[in-house]
């Protein structure tokens, strides 16, 4: 048996914006991380219809792959009351109630200003829960509700090969864990793992995109992560997606294991 421990837990209520560290998460069978990527800002002409939500390619959203300056905002969004704050270097620059039309208008205008978007092409705040705006939502509805995991041992192996620090936050995972051999997680597609007391099926390796080139501290692209993964490992995968099979509460320190592994 391979056994490790959960290091940290994050959700990203608004796609592309700041993650929120969690001390306890209640996993629910068949669902993704609570309040993860339920909200987003779509670009003009995205074709998103909240009444009939269909998965959209990630480039239809404001997101880090194209808009690395988003990493320079400290956003906080409360999924309970939809209060939204944006800070720049600790200073409040925008506050709105996204449950109100005027709050949404002001917030859409904030992003339009920041990204030089003309008035007639304003981005739009969208949500259509339980629809989630995860990158892999375009693959299947099961994956739309999968949780993302990063093995910190894999990341350390990558850092060692590069000889430089690669912040885990680049990968915007829900669950960061430690204690499995580097990259062993990539061999588990189709297998069952235990996350705390919940069974989960590993469904996909996470192929990394250019969003991971953005340094969360400097809000600039610096390390070409997908290319370097390809050069060092012959693939650009780091991390996995898993679909949750049981209800369970998890927290940092919870066990994460592979049953029956050698």
């Amino acid at each position: 048996m391979i056994e490790g421990r959960i290091d940290s837990l994050y959700r990203y209520p608004v796609k592309g914006l700041t993650g929120e560290m969690l001390q306890r998460v209640s996993l629910v069978a068949g669902e993704g991380f609570p309040a993860d990527r339920l909200f987003g800002f779509v670009r003009h002409g995205s074709g998103f219809d909240p009444a009939r939500p269909q998965p959209l390619p990630k480039d239809r959203f404001l997101m880090l792959m194209k808009d690395e300056r988003l990493a320079g905002l400290e956003a906080s969004f409360d999924p309970a009351n939809w209060h939204f704050d944006v800070r720049v270097q600790g200073h409040l620059v925008h506050r709105a109630d996204l449950s109100r039309q005027d709050g949404r208008d002001a917030t859409e205008a904030f992003f339009a200003t920041m990204f030089d978007i003309p008035h007639e092409e304003m981005p739009r705040f969208v949500h259509a829960a339980p629809h989630r705006f995860t990158d892999v939502s375009v693959v299947s509805s099961g994956l739309m509700n999968a949780v993302s995991l990063i093995n910190l041992e894999s990341l350390r192996d990558f850092e060692m090969r590069l000889g430089k620090e690669v912040l885990p936050a680049r990968f915007r995972a829900n669950i960061y864990f430690d204690g499995w051999p580097a990259f062993s997680e990539l061999e588990l597609v189709g297998r069952e793992i235990m996350i705390g007391e919940a069974r989960a099926i590993v469904t996909l390796r996470t192929r990394r995109c250019a969003a991971t080139e953005v340094n969360p501290r400097t809000a600039r692209r610096d390390i070409p992560v997908p290319r370097l993964l390809m050069q060092h490992y012959g693939h650009s995968d780091l991390g996995i997606y898993a679909e949750i099979q049981d209800d369970a509460v998890i927290e940092p320190g919870s066990r994460i294991s592979v049953m029956g592994a050698n």
Binding site: P57, C209, P226
Partner: peptide
């Protein structure tokens, strides 16, 4: 159609 935008996929 695009995905990785880094020349790898």
């Amino acid at each position: 159609a695009s995905s990785c935008e880094s020349g790898t996929c």
